[in-house]
Amino acid sequence: MLDFIWGGMMLVSVIFGICSGRQAQITEAVFSGSGAAVTLCISLLGTICLWSGLMRIAEKSGITKAISFVLKPVIRLLFPGLQPGGKAAQYICMNVSANLLGLGNAATPFGLEAMKQLQADNPDKTTASNHMITFVVMNTASVQLIPTTIAMLRSKYGSTSPMDIIPAVWAASLCSLLVGVTIARLLNGRCKR
């Protein structure tokens, strides 16, 4: 997918630019673009390292576990019929709490493990089960307490209160999560398996 987007953008740019006589601007963009990317990486570096470090402490001190304990009843509600103390439920909780803290790297292994556990209970191994769908939709809806990367980008371009968008981010991610899970559940019921 990305092959076509990346290649397509470059091809269209070159053809479109030459047709409209902007070859000089395109040449300039090639060099300024790669430079801008490095600047972006360097500004990302500080924020990402700082939060990875802080979140490692959160993980080690049991904050992730505490959050996943609080989440248990919610998970029970979202995955009816899933054994509450079982491995699948445990991994799902850990995945969600890691996502909440913005620990994408820690969340993925928990998520993949949860999928493996759900697959064990799946009667048809090539078709997604209802729980799998709910779980993947939860992951694509992304609920993050502190959107650090975005705040960093805003402060890079001169925002004095880069986190003032937090209530909006929470509202949007919560709504999309609720809508996504509701639709998944509704469609689950329609085609029972």
Binding site: W6, M9, M10, V12, S13, V14, F16, G17, S20, R22, Q25, I26, E28, A29, V30, S32, G33, S34, A36, A37, L40
Partner: peptide, 13 residues
């Protein structure tokens, strides 16, 4: 990707 986006912008596309 940033180079591609930057080119895309510069070309007017």
């Amino acid at each position: 990707l940033i180079t591609a986006v930057e080119m895309f912008k510069a070309s007017g596309a």
